[in-house]
Nucleic acid binder design. Structure first.
Length: 429
RNA sequence: GCCGUCGUAGCUCAGUCUGGUAGAGCCCCUGACUGUUAAUCAGGUGGUCUCCGGUUCGAAUCCGGACGACGGCGCCA
């Protein structure tokens, strides 16, 4: 089948061919109808003259509304008057389906677009993002496989959470309570002791009522776990996988990211290592900017924005205070009040893209952390077995795919990084 | 969990302060136009003013409540 993108690249100029697509715009001037068609690769104008096609076909195309499905047979010509510089001059045209009045027009509100999301996904903006998403997923898989990681899959239905008392979606499981996974974390550690280097990309669910431009209740999580590795080892993977994804997207869809507001040159220039600072250094920088954050408090949106302001690529913050960090994060042997944990923080309001850490290997230390956080170690019985049978240093991270895509595409809101976003207020369409 | 804004035609909104027969643009329909770029021009269709209750001779408008949505913060990826 002929692709519009190939026509726009001059690949079919002068040829007679048949194009299938949907009406994106239609204009009529008496004896001529200009129909802009879209397919999955772009938009192209078809020019239909009254005297070049059968009378009934002309009458049909003249009254076909936006989003009608049509096939056009004709010759591809280069013409400056056509949007995009190319058009197809029809010798035949068939309206496969006459669309009803399409609800989406020029003036749009966020609310309405979310109501008709199933139709809005046809827009140029959304299809551009989908192509970038496609390339991003491919790049992340490619990176980990090239680096010798095994793709292994955790369950989506789980008996408990991984982040202490965090917010889980409950599901009824044959009369018992189960939960949708919010991270493969605990399973990853078990799998890393089986397969050494493991990764996976899949959905995570968080029942947090977060009303922000960077939260979804259902999002795609790229996670990795590596045995015989420390924090620095996995930081390198985090930087490299992000850089690799940026490069691949820049190669695969430069026009799409450019149209979305992210010049492909910026993506090509993303390079590891990223700027790295410790939590203590971050606090000093913030203080110099007049933002006094109490030691021990997590960086908030405000602080993350200040730290990434003007940066062309994400930055990394390491060595967070141990207070209120997840129980499985390893203590810094030289500073027991810190953990060997890190975040990759993107600019443009995206914030934390990656969160990771070296894992605590000592059974008793983990037990104590669980108790300190008010958890019952018994509930983590199977997980704690990883510290009973051949416990080794290991580390890993989780990356929010939509956050990465949000950063790459410079999206104002994370919900556009996924076709049908799930947020606290909305789970339809 | 906290704070704020909004709800009128299919869509985007005005009208609400100061109560008196529901408005505009776009879409759509009809007609004109053989190079339009959000085409243009002329005419036309289209309403449970979110819902419930109250005040009033009279409520889109004033009062009370409910519901829904959007935006921001916190938490996280």
């Amino acid at each position: 089948m002929v692709r519009i993108a190939d026509i726009l690249h001059g690949g079919h100029t002068g040829r007679e061919l048949e194009l299938k697509g949907w009406i994106y715009r239609t204009r009529s001037v008496g004896g001529k109808v200009f129909v802009v068609l879209r397919d999955d690769t772009g938009i192209l104008q078809a020019t239909i003259s009254k005297d070049a096609v059968p009378a009934d076909a002309f009458a049909a195309i003249a009254k076909a509304l936006i989003e009608s499905a049509v096939t056009v047979r004709g010759t591809v010509v280069e013409d400056k008057r056509a949007p995009g510089g190319f058009e197809i001059r029809a010798t035949g045209v068939l309206v496969v389906h006459f669309a009803e009045k399409f609800p989406i027009q020029e003036d749009l509100s966020e609310e309405f677009l979310l109501d008709v999301r199933h139709l809005w996904v046809r827009s140029q903006r959304m299809t551009r993002i989908f192509r970038v998403r496609h390339a991003t997923f491919a790049a992340v898989h490619e990176y980990f496989r090239d680096q010798g990681f095994w793709e292994v899959h955790p369950p989506m239905i789980t008996p408990a959470g991984s982040e202490g008392g965090a917010t889980l979606f409950e599901v009824e499981y044959f009369g018992r309570k189960a939960y949708l996974t919010q991270s493969w974390q605990l399973y990853a550690e078990a799998l890393a002791l089986a397969m050494s280097k493991v990764y996976y990309i899949g959905p995570s669910f968080r029942a947090e009522k977060s009303r922000t431009t960077r939260h979804l209740t259902e999002y795609w999580h790229a996670e990795m776990e590596q045995a015989w590795a420390g924090m620095d080892d996995v930081i390198k993977h985090a930087e490299s996988v992000i850089a690799h994804a940026c490069h691949r997207v820049a190669e695969a869809c430069p026009g799409d990211v450019a149209a979305l507001g992210r010049p492909p040159e910026v993506l090509k220039a993303v390079r590891a290592p990223f700027e790295r600072l410790t939590y203590d250094e971050a606090l000093r920088i913030l203080k110099a900017k007049g933002m006094d954050l109490e030691w021990g408090k997590d960086l908030r949106t405000l602080e993350e924005r200040a730290l990434t302001e003007g940066k062309a690529q994400p930055i990394i913050v390491t060595h967070y205070p141990r207070v209120s960090q997840a129980f499985y994060k390893a203590r810094d042997p030289t500073r027991p009040d810190l953990v060997l944990g890190f975040d990759v923080i993107g600019g443009d309001g995206v914030g934390e893209i990656v969160g990771g850490s070296e894992r605590e290997t000592d059974l008793e230390t983990i037990r104590k952390s669980l108790v300190d956080q008010g958890e019952d170690p018994k509930a983590y019985g199977w997980y704690l077995d990883s510290r009973r049978y051949g416990s080794v240093p290991h580390a890993g991270f989780g990356m929010g795919m939509e956050r990465l895509i949000q950063w790459i595409c410079k999206l104002e809101h994370i919900r556009d990084a996924v076709p049908f976003p799930r947020t606290p207020a909305r789970f339809a369409p």
